[in-house]
Amino acid sequence: MSKKKTRRDFIVIASYSMGAVGAGAAIWPIINQMNPAADTLAMASTEVNIGALEIGQALTVKWRGKPVFIRRRTEDEINETRNVAIDTLRDPQSDEERVQKDEWLIVMGVCTHLGCVPLGQKIGDGKGDYGGWFCPCHGSHYDASGRIRKGPAPQNLEIPPYSFISDSVLKIG
């Protein structure tokens, strides 16, 4: 029984390898069919009329099946978010980086912890300890810039791609 590699060894290894590749190729479509389908992927955009929104008011719209929070912030809220020392934040970002227009904060209404919709949009909702949003599921607090301040969430509320078509029309997506 010599340990010398023979041509037969090569054939055996090559056969097993081909078998493995073939099995993988056959399984892939079964796995891939579970990925988002073409119609789901087609990234729809939403246009929102924000002309009627007064200062201090908020609006929730649906985009890609998820809520988007639009908040027309008060002077106090803007000042408050800008007076925070950035390096004390869990996910350091200045408020200026997170908005296009000072008054308008547009963020995904999806908690970065486990995907619940935070409270704070409706009148009468608790806004959490930092004047933004509070997630009831596991107690994450966000400030008026949508930044995570307290609780288990690891990141600030995500900012969707958006642009202002005019002063009163916002396009998300």
Binding site: A37, T40, G65
Partner: peptide, 22 residues
């Protein structure tokens, strides 16, 4: 969303499980 904690591939895995973004 538990699976979104997996580094780097967490988000794609969640989308794969859901078959979409939500």
């Amino acid at each position: 969303n538990f699976f979104s904690v997996i580094p780097f591939v967490g988000e794609p895995i969640v989308n794969w499980l859901l078959g979409g973004y939500t």
